[in-house]
């Protein structure tokens, strides 16, 4: 299987590379439209500021390229946020696959710290990405901005309020959390994305 990772100015892409290698996959890191279109799976990672990362994407027309991909795509963290319509972080228009806006967490109590950093449970999981999930599971999050629950939500988490821990539309999947850092639970999610036949069908 050929897995391509979108290579742009985003932090910590290597943790995704390592996670895939542990699953026996040697991914290619690329910003070429041709390479991306040839891959069986595309992973769109992200860590960093929405406006800065969006600017980097646009420099290589990656915003349009990602939107046009036909194979299963998995956005991670800021990758997920950039797949939405707009982000409050830097007030920037994003790729627009998911017609929903990214908001900043507004704490209501002192102990609700931002960034939201650590292990939180996800529930109400749907689609083949979470095949085999029958109870809430802990995954690792690091973020200050979130996607509200919406019609594309396929996993929910709760921090200050309920929000989208994962999204899905057609061939596009995205997680706010880091499956590559979420221990054995994260590995199950990555394996589902790579190997589950229903992912091919966008289910």
């Amino acid at each position: 299987m050929k897995v391509a990772i979108v290579d742009y100015n985003a932090g910590n892409i290597y943790s995704v590379v390592h996670a895939l290698k542990r699953l026996g996959i040697d991914p290619v890191l690329t910003n070429s439209a041709e390479e991306l279109s040839k891959a069986d799976r595309v992973i769109f990672p992200g860590q960093g500021h929405a406006r800065t990362t969006m600017t980097s994407l646009k420099e290589h027309r990656l915003d349009e390229i990602i939107k046009g991909l036909k194979q299963p795509v998995l956005g991670i963290c800021v990758g997920q946020q950039l797949m939405c319509r707009h982000s409050e972080e830097g007030d920037v228009d994003c790729v627009g696959i998911f017609d929903v806006d990214v908001k900043r967490f507004c704490p209501t109590r002192h102990d609700e710290k931002v960034p939201c950093m650590g292990w939180n449970d996800i529930r109400n999981t749907k689609t083949a990405l979470f095949c085999g999930f029958d109870k809430p599971e802990f995954v690792y999050f690091v973020h200050s901005y979130y996607v509200p629950t919406c019609q594309w939500t396929i996993a929910e988490s709760d921090y200050i309020q309920p929000y989208s821990a994962a999204l899905h539309k057609d061939n596009f999947y995205a997680t706010q959390f880091h499956p590559e850092k979420s221990g054995s639970v994260g590995e199950r999610i990555l394996k589902n994305f790579l190997n589950n036949n229903d992912i091919e069908k966008g289910l």
């Binding site: 542990r22 979420s182 221990g183």
Partner: peptide
């Protein structure tokens, strides 16, 4: 460590 460990 990064290659072998799947937590932060």
């Amino acid at each position: 460590v990064a290659a072998n460990i799947n937590i932060p």
